[in-house]
Structure formats: C-alpha cells, structure tokens
Design a protein around this nucleic acid. Structure first.
Length: 366
DNA sequence: CCCTCGATCAC
DNA sequence: CCTCATATCGAGGG
C-alpha cells in the first residue's frame, strides 16, 4: 500500500507556551532567549512569536540586535525554560502518539508520524486524523500547530512548513511534481547553507535542477550516501520509515566562557559545572558511557574536538573529570583561544535495560 | 573493524 | 554579535 506520512510542528513553540502561561503577553512581540551570561544581553533569540517576526526577528539573532529592531514596540524578552517546554512537549507527543500508527519525535516541538494503516491509505481519512490532532491540541491544551501530510517524510516535512501557523497542507501522490517545482533546494530536509552554496556553484538552485543533476556530480560533491539521498529527495522519493526513537546515543553540555581564554585552569574551572550537569543526566538515565569528547569553539567560532574511547564503559565522575581535563589540555596545546567549551559522552549503554551482567560485559556476544 | 576528528544539519 | 544539543557522514589512520 502507498504510505501516508505526516509531520507536525508546534507553532513558535517556546513563545507560544509563554503566551499560554501569561495571556497578557499576547499581542506583543514575545522573544524567548538563551542568555549566555557573558554580558548583560549577550545571547541569541531562540523563538519569537509572529508579532516579533513581523519586525524581522529570527531565531538565532543576537539579543542586542533584536532589541534594536524592537525599540519602543513593547517587546517582552523571556529567558528560556527548557524543563518547562520539555514537560509540555511530552504531554503533546503522547496525545499525538495515541492518534497515529507510529510516532517519531524529531525535536522538542516536532514529529513525523505514519498513518498508513489507520487511514487505509486514504488522504481524506488522513486529513481527518490531522484535523483531530490539531483540534485536540488546541482544545485540550490551548496551543496551535501545523501539519503536513504526504507520501513520505520529506514531503510531509515540507508540507508542514508550507502554511504556518495553524496550517494543514496535503500533498497527494498526484500533486508531488507540482509542489516541488520551483522550490529552492534549501527547503529539502538535509540541505543547509553549505550544501546550498556548493550546489549554487554548479548552477543548481531549485529542486527541479537538483532532480536533473547527474548523480556522479552529486557524489563528487557530497559522497555516496548524500548523493543518493539528494537525488531521490529532489524527485519526491523517500523510503525512510517512520520509527519510534530509541535511546539517546550521546549527551553533551556546552557553555560560553566569561571571557576568551587559552588557560587550562581557567577554562576547566568553567567547564566543571557542565561536567557535573552532564554526569547527573547520565546517572539519572541509568547510562554508562565508553567515549568522551571535549568540544572547544575558538574566537573565530570554529569548532575543535578531542575525544577518546575508554577500555570499559563507566559512569564514574572522577574518571570523567580527569579524562576531560586531559583532553582539554591536549586541545589547548594547539594554541587556540576558546570562546566556548563543552563536554560530550557517547557510546552509551542503558544499564536499566541490561538483563544480566554478562550481557553488559559481553555486549557483542550475541 | 575500530578510533578520532571535522563537517554539516537543524533544533 | 554569534546558544545549545543530537545525529549522521566521510576521511584518514591503524
């Protein structure tokens, strides 16, 4: 049977939650911000409501730049409260999960879903399911969302972005060609600014152009896998299944230094709380890790990493601290002056799911 | 096959 | 003036 796939996106999620909690905010520009703590207003805008977007506010914009644009407009700046949004997200995802065949959460505020079985392959039936989901989110929780429905994940994702906020866009099998024609390549999931620039240099700016490009050309630019992906995607083809997300495979924390530094003592001092926070998360989720990395972002904003894999998986805090310290020193020997520093653990094993000690000791011994 | 590292994407 | 976190790919060395 032909698949019927959806993508749901909660509208201006963080800012909408703040409006819900405090209705007096509505009608004003509302900006949820990540404050880096380096100076009073250093940091960026995470999410802005549509009143703010009307004045040209975008995600990722420096807070100071946003303030300049919004002077005298009654704008409200709110620091991000990730735990609060996480809680709301969990409730909403459960609501959606109960109304679809398979749900694949792909971010705090978005998810793919498969309704092939439930709709019997009918787009009309799928449209009713989408309306029900939107209605439930609105009437039970007071939030608007946008949904796209199409024959695969790529088209569903483009569709959900097509009309926002509070949109519902259907791309039926016979409408795929028309929908894709003329779209800029950046609209395709997986095509960001770097990829778009490389394509542009080859004279490819639209999905149609990409669809007609020789696959060898793409392979030379991006490698085999990405080339095949881009070729298929631009032709409206995508077989990626919707799958419920498994366990997380890495945990990281990153922070901005009070001032740029290349001094190991100073940098480690400011990294330590991130290490503690990451460790808490790892223990809370009953995980052990086998690899760890130090992440540095230098004053030119380019990223450097150092990592190592341990003999045995562990969740030992002292070992984590010692190893992080060593990796940090290695990273700093390059002489780079850092602006931000972070830590990451990966190769995670979920200890709560290990049925026996032997399974943990011999994870490859199937 | 394993490990490390950088690049890219997108949240 | 430039946050934070996760996942994936590919190259290169062993």
């Amino acid at each position: 049977m032909n698949r019927v796939i959806g993508h749901i996106d909660l509208d201006y999620f963080y800012a909408q939650i703040e409006e819900l909690e405090k209705p007096s905010l509505k009608g004003n520009p509302v900006l949820v911000c990540v404050y880096s703590g380096r100076t009073e207003d250093s940091g960026v805008v995470s999410t802005a409501n549509y009143e703010a977007r009307r004045f040209g506010i975008k995600s990722g914009m420096p807070i100071v730049a946003a303030k300049r644009k919004l002077e005298g407009k009654g704008a409200i700046f709110i620091p991000m409260d990730h735990e609060k949004y996480e809680g709301v997200s969990e409730m909403l995802m459960q609501l959606v999960r109960a109304r679809v065949d398979i749900l694949e959460q792909s971010g705090i505020d978005e998810a793919f879903f498969d309704v092939t079985a439930m709709s019997g392959g009918s787009y009309d039936a799928a449209e009713l399911i989408a309306l029900d989901i939107k209605g439930a989110i609105l009437h039970l929780h007071g939030l608007t969302s946008s949904i796209g429905i199409g024959p695969n994940k790529i088209l569903a994702k483009i569709a959900s972005d097509y009309k926002k906020p509070d949109g519902l866009t259907m791309i039926r099998a016979d409408g795929v060609k028309e929908f894709l024609s003329g779209l800029p390549v950046e609209k395709l999931y997986g095509v960001g600014s770097k990829t778009a620039k490389l394509l542009q240099e080859k004279g490819i700016g639209t999905v149609d152009g990409l669809a007609g490009a020789p696959i060898e050309l793409l392979e030379g630019l991006f490698g085999r896998k990405t080339a095949v992906y881009l070729h298929n995607a631009s032709n409206g083809l995508d077989d990626e299944p919707v799958v419920e997300r498994g366990e997380t495979t890495q945990v990281s924390r990153i922070t901005t230094l009070k001032r740029d530094s290349r001094d190991a003592v100073e940098v480690y001092g400011q990294l330590a709380p991130s290490i503690e926070s990451l460790w808490k998360r790892v223990v809370e989720k009953k995980l052990v890790f086998r690899s760890l990395s130090i992440i540095g972002i230098d004053t030119a904003l380019s990223m450097k990493t150092k990592s190592k894999t341990l003999e045995m998986a562990t969740s030992d805090l002292e070992l984590l601290k010692r190893s992080a310290r060593t990796l940090l020193e290695e990273l700093l020997t390059s002489g780079a002056e850092l602006r931000r520093v972070g830590v990451r653990v990966s190769d995670l094993i979920d200890m709560s799911k290990q049925s026996s000690l032997m399974e943990y000791l011999q994870p490859k011994g199937e």
